[in-house]
Amino acid sequence: MQTKESRGLVLYSRPYREEDRLVKMFTEVSGKHMFFVRHAGKSKLSSVIQPLTLADFILKINANGLSYIEDYKEVTVFKAINSDIFRLSYASYLLALADAAVVDGITDASLFAFLVKTLELMDKGLDYEILTNIFEIQVLERFGVQLNFHECAICHRVGLPFDFSHRYSGLLCPDHYQQDAYRSHVDPNVIYLLDRFQNMKFEDLKTISLKPEMKQKLRQFIDLIYEDYVGLRLKSKTFIDELNKWGDIMKDHPIKD
């Protein structure tokens, strides 16, 4: 068992026996591990083992079993996210997606930094739907999925009104639409945005503003990509889908005083 100091982000916490808890944490220097916290309610750690808590931890890492949290400092709580059910549901989905994307115990400092930065921007009020889309597209490679949203799979031309082909796992330009009779017929603007999302820098996010119809098209197409290429259906994603339906109902039927 090794003692390490690392930034860590709590992914989830669940009861274990009567008073103890198991805490899944994504650490910057050692990847994801499950930590055992004894008498969690009375422990000095009680305030930092809640999901979406980021802190500098002193940890005892066990490669083959449960690990332990020795101490902590420099705690960050995403207050704006936790105060809004929509942002919270999307942030929870990002945690679950990151958890699914890498094997426990494998260090992935770049994914850790990407996840933390995405949450920070979400907490600052940037569009949580677009942030989630960007995270989903950029994390695809962690699932072994490499899709080119930049050029035609046949002639490699760029900058055209592309469509997506599952047959070629890539794009077709208008000259090659006939190569796949079952092409997606997706809005070319969706493909354009996904191409941007694959390499987008966080500084560019402040310039992006999308209409609800385009967000819906993005959501539907990314869901299709995950269904066909990843085969992943997380409970937190199902909750988002249901929550969005409730949100639409509330918009259509606002509560009157």
Rank of each mutant, 00 (worst) to 15 (best):
L54C: 13
V77F: 05
I58N: 10
L66N: 04
A100R: 15
L97H: 01
L97I: 14
S89Y: 14
F57N: 01
D108N: 13
S67N: 05
K60H: 10
L45D: 02
S83C: 13
D84S: 11
A63K: 04
N62C: 08
I58P: 00
V102Q: 03
L59R: 01
L66Y: 12
S83G: 12
S67R: 00
Y90P: 01
L115D: 01
A40N: 05
L66H: 04
D84L: 12
D56R: 02
V37C: 01
I69Y: 03
S47N: 12
I61T: 07
A113W: 09
D108L: 13
A101M: 12
I69D: 00
G41A: 09
S43L: 11
S43Q: 07
F78R: 01
A101D: 06
S89F: 09
K60R: 09
S47P: 05
A109V: 15
A55G: 06
D108S: 08
L95G: 03
F57L: 06
L97E: 01
G65T: 12
V102W: 09
K42I: 14
V48D: 02
D99E: 15
D84W: 07
V75L: 10
V48N: 03
V103W: 05
F78D: 01
V77A: 04
A101G: 08
T53R: 00
I58F: 07
S46N: 10
L97S: 05
D108T: 09
A63W: 08
V37D: 01
I58W: 06
V48T: 10
S43E: 06
R38F: 15
S67I: 03
P51G: 10
K79M: 15
L115T: 04
L95M: 11
I81Y: 00
N64A: 11
N64C: 09
K60D: 08
F86N: 02
I85V: 11
I58T: 13
N64T: 12
Y93Q: 01
G105S: 11
Y90V: 01
A80T: 11
A113G: 08
R38V: 15
N64Q: 10
L115R: 00
